[in-house]
């Protein structure tokens, strides 16, 4: 039986400009959220889901969704923009499994050799520690392994298509660039990238090195913040005969947050094609 995407279109349209709201997903535990990124340069396509035309004349660099869908298996196929149906896909068909409560991004992109393909990524929508931001980098470009630089220093090293790396870092605006692994000469950027506290920012390196059209695409998932654990509103007063105990107990140091990224991890994405 076909599952129609049209039935859920109205739900998807409630989302704010491509920004997922995991709170909504949490309330409807039997659904999943799916975004679709078009990352094949110079190619307008149609996207079929379970044989139904879902994205018509989908252009490169566009992010669609998130769609809120019942958990289950879905068949995705990408065709030329003038195709009559999903019968002659240029990518796929591939079957993806959406688990209840999950958040996913399917990408149409180039593999390392420049052939159009599809990848299916699971987005980490777990809570982000208070005062931090999550950054995920995905290599979906026709290019060799790369390093991702922040302020000129590598924060992710030796990332290959279609792998991803995730790290937790301080929020703020970083100067992001991508370089061939082991080098610092940018092949993409540098470009300012704002990482907001309590959000997950997913950056895709896409395009083709050979064709000179490498670029970054960005997806943001909001609402993953945590609250401070406590409000320590007391310290020894200036008039006080400050015993060590009171000072030690009450003084709250201003602690500069480390600028270094923590907890970097790299894992392979699940290639769906």
């Amino acid at each position: 039986m076909r599952k129609s995407f049209y039935a859920v279109g109205a739900v998807a349209a409630l989302g704010v400009a491509g920004v997922a709201s995991p709170a909504i997903a949490a309330e409807t535990a039997d659904t999943a959220q799916l975004s679709v990124l078009h990352a094949v340069p110079d190619l307008t396509v149609d996207v079929y889901v379970n044989g139904d035309l879902t994205l018509d004349d989908f252009t490169p660099g566009t992010l669609a969704g998130p769609l809120e869908l019942p958990a289950g298996d879905y068949e995705l196929a990408v065709t030329a923009a003038d195709a009559d149906d999903a019968g002659a896909p240029v990518i796929g068909p591939v079957t993806v499994t959406l688990a209840a409560g999950g958040n996913y991004t399917a990408t149409a992109n180039l593999d390392a050799e420049g052939t159009p393909t599809a990848n299916f990524y699971t987005n980490d929508v777990s809570a982000v520690e208070a005062g931090k931001a999550r950054l995920t980098v995905r290599h979906t470009a026709a290019a060799p392994a790369v390093d991702v630089l922040a302020g000129g220093a590598p924060v992710v090293e030796n990332l290959s298509n279609p792998d991803e790396a995730t790290l937790t870092t301080d929020p703020g605006t970083i100067s992001a660039a991508v370089a061939a692994t082991g080098t610092t000469a940018p092949v993409i950027g540098p470009a300012d990238l704002t990482l907001a506290e309590g959000t997950a920012t997913i950056v895709y390196a896409w395009g083709s090195l050979e064709d000179g059209n490498l670029a970054l695409a960005t997806q943001v998932i909001e609402g993953l913040h945590s609250d401070p654990a406590a409000v320590p509103g007391a310290q020894a007063g200036p008039a006080q005969d400050s015993s060590g105990m009171l000072l030690g107990a009450g003084a709250v140091g201003l602690v500069l947050l480390s600028g270094a990224a923590v907890a970097a991890r790299v894992r392979s994405s699940r290639a769906a094609a």
Binding site: A13, L55, L63, G65, A217
Partner: peptide, 12 residues
């Protein structure tokens, strides 16, 4: 899109 799916440029 025609199906009511939100589309946006995948830019920061």
């Amino acid at each position: 899109s025609a199906a009511g799916i939100t589309l946006r440029p995948a830019t920061a």
